[in-house]
Design a binder for these strands. Structure first.
Lengths: 165, 165
DNA sequence: TCGAAATCGTTATAATATAACATATCGGCA
DNA sequence: TGCCGATATGTTATATTATAACGATTTCGA
């Protein structure tokens, strides 16, 4: 049967074990199809980032992984994060200098807007086709050639305002 | 006579002395109309930020101001920057952890998209009404209540690609 | 002119990120 | 198989960005 697409903001009671397993699978696939190496270190770092739907700091990851035995040097973690970002399975939350796992399907991936709930800390990505089309128009009007864009909203998610459907 | 609005990306040969004077005037007005105090420290910091159309780091400001005699503590500069941001005359460039002067007219101010040229370093702000309307639609579709937004494009400006009109 | 609020100074430290160079591992290929 | 170049990781040091805590000073209205 076809798998249902998870909502951008995960239901508070969602099955995160299954969700995480799928996220790991997508990451493995992403590395494989791009001919990149998902090494043990990168996998361990990714698991920490994907463990929640929050954005986590590099030093939080070091702290968490130290509970598994070895305390990594910051540079090791940053290098792993760089590789994960390169592969597209992790994104950087600029407004918080932190990192979050991409829970979107990389195959059908479009450009996403990042929504960050200040109350529960959950990060969601939603398709931003219309927004990015507007930005393209705006940039061409200035004859500006884009190389990267950041579109992040901070606020309160539906679950936190009690508006959950 | 009515003053001509400066283009988002200033012409390389523009009269920056006059441009800066206008920017300072707008800052003074912004502080005054909001009942805030544009103190000597804040003014000195603002002058450094507004000295170029680039985004400058807090420690660059400390360095520049140290040439005028006193070496300020980081916290002093950060507090001044906070006040300038609060007054709306300075914005933060999230993608570079740096700060730039707002060259838009605060009175008629709408929400702006930030364009950052990776080649010449110039920061421009352009009206982003359409973009922000899209974002409003996107956010309501998720029942997401926005409190702040970041929309930053990085790339190459027309002057740097040789496309200048 | 008194007093509360705002501003600024001083010191210390937290939090985030990278440079430089050595060692180890992987994977193709002679 | 064993070498080699490329990639990845370890190690040490340091750069960069930002804030905490507390006291002194200034401002401005009552």
């Amino acid at each position: 049967m076809a798998q249902r697409t998870a909502p951008p903001f995960p239901n508070p009671g969602h099955n995160h074990v299954a969700c995480l397993a799928q996220t790991l699978d997508r990451a493995r696939t992403a590395f494989e199809t791009q001919g990149l190496r998902l090494t043990d270190l990168r996998l361990r770092v990714f698991k920490q980032i994907a463990a929640s739907h929050h954005a986590v700091g590099a030093y939080d990851i070091i702290e968490q992984l130290s509970h598994e035995g070895t305390r990594l040097a910051p540079v090791s973690v940053y290098r792993a994060i760089d590789a994960l970002i390169e592969a597209g399975v992790v994104h950087r939350l600029e407004s918080k200098n932190a990192f979050f796992a991409c829970h979107a399907n990389h195959a059908s991936q479009r450009q996403n807007v990042v929504l960050s709930c200040a109350t529960c800390g959950v990060i969601a990505e939603v398709d931003g086709e219309a927004v990015f089309a507007c930005l393209d128009t705006l940039a061409s009007a200035q004859q500006f050639t884009q190389t990267s864009r950041i579109v992040e909203l901070t606020g309160r998610c539906a679950h936190c305002t009690g508006n959950a459907a």
